[in-house]
Amino acid sequence: MFTGTVVWASSGDEQHKSKGNPIDTKEEIDAYIRHHLQDSHDFIFYTDGETGTHYGFPLPVILWDGGIKTFMSSKFHHGESVAEVGGSYYKLYHGKVYKTDAEGTITLDDHDHPTNAKPLDFSITKSVVGMLFAGLLMLLLFSALARGYKKGPIPSGFARVLEPLVIYVRDEIARPNIGEKKYRKYMGFLLTVFFFIWILNLLGLTPLGFNVTGNIAVTVCLALFTFFIVQFSGNKEYWKHIFWMPGVPVPMKIILMPIEVLGMLTKPFSLLIRLFANITAGHFVVMSLIGLMILLKAQFGAVGSTGISLILTLFISVIEILVAFLQAFIFTMLSSLFIGMAVAEHDHH
């Protein structure tokens, strides 16, 4: 975490800004944080504010705009120039690709949102890289654990750390919520989602600058998976409780129906909002506290402001490590709770 704060702080002079003018006002820091929270098409570790050189590497851009168009994001020159591909012109504006004319004009509406056409963007963005990395890591670690069982019943080495986690998810999350008989079917989803979210959350705490689970599209996708699994595994009782609640008078049944349908939809909504908001808030707070180093320099001097910022950031970062686990746990827990509600055999009361 310590190195993380330092790298973040040192990469504070980054992006968008003109040469020789480091980010040092409140508005600039705010804009920088907002930029970090968004997905990006290239990987930048450090930008030299004096010369405006970015140190990092570009990522491939894949657009669907009447046909697949692929090119490297270096063509955008970090949003400074227009990329011309197959007769169409594209420009980056606040991390998003817009279709423009040859000059790269972007027209804004009243809310400062561009009115330009947006091509469908299937690029390998930073978040996609993060996801691929997490997926690969999981495959490597857990297939090693699986192979370890061929040698003997007790795993060795790092697999010893992983095995209790798998057992934890199985015994503390899946079994009590879904039930002894049916939990096995959902273990693949629950385990994958748990470790996927956890690894991505932790990846967000490294100085690499990932913010995958703080992306609304990612959490929407995760929550939709849970939503569809719950709906497809719902038994007759489940649907009966939604559309024709047993044991209450008919007028009540009619009133309860829309409420229950709404409840069906708010469950995944709260799942996606919770994960998104927690991670976004965590990143925001950590980066704001790092920003304090620059903002408080005038009042406390370089050493004082750095010290204050360091202690606060360290404290919040430790909490964020806990939150990283807690959010993965909560997501998996609630998913299995919803699945358990859908497959439960009700005793008739």
Partner: peptide, 18 residues
């Protein structure tokens, strides 16, 4: 466990409103 689940539900509500 129950406390964390209820806390999470409340949190979801609050975040949703925010």
């Amino acid at each position: 466990t129950a406390m964390i689940i209820i806390g999470a539900l409340l949190e979801g509500l609050a975040f949703g409103a925010l």
